[in-house]
Design a protein around this nucleic acid. Structure first.
Lengths: 230, 230
DNA sequence: TCGAACGGAAATACAGTGTATCGCCATGAG
DNA sequence: CTCATGGCGATACACTGTATTTCCGTTCGA
């Protein structure tokens, strides 16, 4: 039995870096949601033992932070429109699209301050869009407000999307979808305005809803900006 | 061996109901955050075995749903103001206060459709505030927009609050707090607008920030409402 | 050239999780 | 008094995040 007969020994441990770890984690989350991301599974996908990862992160939460920052890279457009309003709109829509590509992002959005390079870059871009159009405090308030709306709207959209997927029914069949419960609640007469909304409201698609609310918020921002800066 | 010598037999199992289960879960979450809520610990607090709970809920997620609905009961004011704007403001601020009392609410807010009785009641109250002031679709858009803002703003506030608590430093010391990283990032010149905001912006307290953004959003709503309904 | 020290990866270990299943026992019916 | 039933606890399982220990290949010093 010479060397030549024997197969090569199992490959030396694959060199790791954060990039590869995060990519594996993102892939897992894209396939099975955040709950499919476990240290063991991420490591397995990289042919490594679980503990190996703890040389690159010190906690699973940090892995999530890295994942968020990673997909935030998809948010920044190649070039920013000059018009502040258009710039903010693009950022918002790209955030939404990122969340639709990576639904787990909705679970993490707004959950922790985004201090990673791409997260900072997104914040920078948002601030830059309004830079000089008002005093700094107004700009900060504007950024906070728009971001809060975007976060909240995306979260709700994904939540509804999952609910529809789980029941297999469309939002229009909302009350029937949730079983007798909501139906009877609405029939109880205790929620007249809600009942009217469900029965008489035309259900608009999610993107339109997002865009409409966003426009309203941008209107509000515009109103504050036009007041001359200090 | 008379009756008097013998101890009482082990107490009969405590009767359970959802209310007590949810109350125990909420208490645990208030003390140690959402992660402190485990089926075993909730059950232990009720002198019951873990599996006992599965007669009342079928999944831990359902327990969370019940918890959210429970604290949503705290949101509804005794009586609604007549002015729609004041009504929405009150609802928003009470939601925020509930989240400050139960910080874990921020983790759940917007995560799933709120179909519980109190959740529906909150939605009803929100819709009712605007009922009749515009066509139904406009009203729905308005409710969605305001809710999205409230959700997002509360989430960010709690996230920042936790971050400050973890580093033990105030938001003003943000860049120093996060260690050399943010400091060097800001110094790098790659984020001029951000740097300006951090250094020149006056940091306003969270409540004011919340209220300001809310007012802006309400301004936007007002602008749409004044356009006569169809 | 041998030995020892070192560094990093892997294996093991632990305490805990959500939930399915099983077996028992106290209660009520006949 | 016996038997069936229903609900409860105990047990079990697969899995989690992470600390610790064990081991081995490499590199350096003598």
């Amino acid at each position: 039995m010479t060397v030549w007969d024997r197969p090569e020994p199992p490959t030396r441990p694959v060199p790791l870096d954060r990039e590869r770890i995060v990519a594996a984690a993102v892939a897992l989350a894209d396939e099975g949601g955040l709950e499919a991301v476990s240290v063991r599974k991420v490591a397995a996908r990289l042919n490594a033992g679980p503990m190996r990862l703890y040389g690159y992160i010190s906690t699973k939460q940090e892995l999530f932070d890295l994942m968020v920052d990673e997909v935030q890279a998809e948010i920044l457009p190649e070039e920013q429109p000059d018009d502040w309003r258009e710039a903010l709109r693009v950022l918002a829509h790209r955030t939404r699209q990122a969340a639709l590509r990576h639904e787990w992002l909705a679970d993490l959005l707004g959950g922790r301050p985004t201090l990673g390079p791409h997260g900072l870059a997104v914040t920078e871009a948002t601030l830059a869009a309004l830079d000089g159009l008002a005093d700094i405090d107004t700009v900060m308030r504007a950024v906070e407000t728009v971001s809060a709306y975007v976060t909240g709207a995306i979260r709700r959209e994904i939540a509804n999307l999952r609910a529809e997927r789980a029941t297999g029914l469309s939002k229009l069949d909302w009350q029937r979808a949730s079983g007798p419960h909501v139906t009877s609640m609405l029939a109880s007469g205790r929620f007249p305005a809600l009942a009217k909304a469900v029965y008489d409201g035309t259900d608009v698609d999610a993107e339109t809803s997002f865009a409409t609310g966003l426009d309203w918020v941008l209107d509000a921002v515009a109103a504050k900006l036009t007041r001359p800066p200090a």
